[in-house]
Amino acid sequence: MTATLTDPTTVTPVIPATRSGTRRRPPVGLLVGAGLLLLLVVFSFVGPLLRPFDAYASDSTPLTGPNAINWLGTDDLGRDVFVRLAVAARASLVVSFFAAVIAAAAGTLVGLVAGLWGRWADAGLMAGVEILLALPSILLALCAVTVFGGSVLTVTLVLALVALPQFARLVRSRSLELRELDFVHSARVSGIPLLRIALRHLLPNTFGVIAVQFANTAAISILLEASLSYLGLSVQPPTPSWGRMIYDAQTYMSTTPWLAVAPLGTILMLSIGWGLVGESLSARRRSLI
């Protein structure tokens, strides 16, 4: 009797298993992507220390071009663009990372419950997910930010909500596939509670798809956050954000284009960084299946 209650994980490997005996070099894309992300993290903390300016202080001549003192020039209020760009990186990194974390956690939970329990739980949860998917993400974000006000927390939660359905569908799909495998059947026949099966047997086997989706979500969240900032609905001034910097720069586009080019460049870097990480993880996962 005791043998039947043994957790089958002890004898069932995580699927797909890594091929034994070979050490793979990390793909170039992963290294470049992770490098870009690391660079921006370092920039966000070290950048402000490199120049003797406060990101909020209007202590220089407005709209000066890049020079030896103000490396990326100054904005329309006389604030140093380089320092503001670095400080703004924190908001973008925090929003993109935590939006993806929250979406991954909540989406995985929904997907696991729907996939493992099935029937009414599956039907109900997936109907909710479909409704969320049917709503245009930017519109949903706009409504939520309008109601609850623009702040880093609100924007992070809104972006997580927007990304949640993708995780839920992926994890549910994977769960449906896994629950038909022998080791899951064995566990159920052995009388192991569904919660334990979900946590011990299904969850580890969904990490691959979650990781890929995580990176993609982070990349998309940056663009959405920038869009909300551009519309004035994300972090509030004078706190810098890349999207808001582009919004403020648009009236000076013909005379001082660097004001828009600098945040545009960092948004691209962060987006490409997450994108490369996601693509590399996806490629690696495909090669292992």
Binding site: Y56, S58, L77, P237, P238
Partner: peptide, 10 residues
């Protein structure tokens, strides 16, 4: 106004 209130804040 958004410019002005940022300067005012400072």
């Amino acid at each position: 106004a958004i410019k002005a209130v940022q300067l005012m804040k400072e």
